[in-house]
Amino acid sequence: MQEIEAIIERYGAQRRHVISILQDIQARFHYLPKDALMEVAARVRIPLIDLYSIATFYNCFSLLPRGEHVIKVCLGTACHLKGGTRLVEALERELGVREGELTPDGRFSFETVRCVGACALAPLVLIDERYYPKMTQRKLTQVLARLRRARQAAEAVP
């Protein structure tokens, strides 16, 4: 709660800053906790429903916690033409969850984005904000395997 307070202080408890405030909360917690929304509503004195509308309207907000790794497949036009949709399907098979969901073990969040403006690299996948240019289904499988192995190795160390 103190952190929320600090974020609100950074901008000022005014309506015009609520989107910035929510963006910072999202950046800090990787999602918008319900309590945080209620706190902001109370402090800025705006109806909770208005915040809830904002939180569900804009792309960058999420009301559910995110996984350890966030995988984003770009579906901008250039990426679509060069097979972005196939990457989405490949990930759905590999992870066993649909776009927008979190794997049951909490490891991977799987999302799609509409163009990050790096179209020369199409098709593009972002994993934890790192760009993987000219992606193929094969390369994607390999990267996932590497992430999984890294975790296993980390767990093996007592």
């Binding site: 910035s20 208005d50 309207f57 792309n59």
Partner: peptide, 25 residues
């Protein structure tokens, strides 16, 4: 600087104004 939170429609000027004012675009 006001950071857009991700909405294509915010490119429309009245929607952009709404976003700047802290509302849904």
């Amino acid at each position: 600087i006001v950071r857009g939170a991700g909405a294509f429609v915010a490119g429309e000027e009245t929607a952009l104004i709404a976003a700047v004012e802290g509302r849904v675009s």
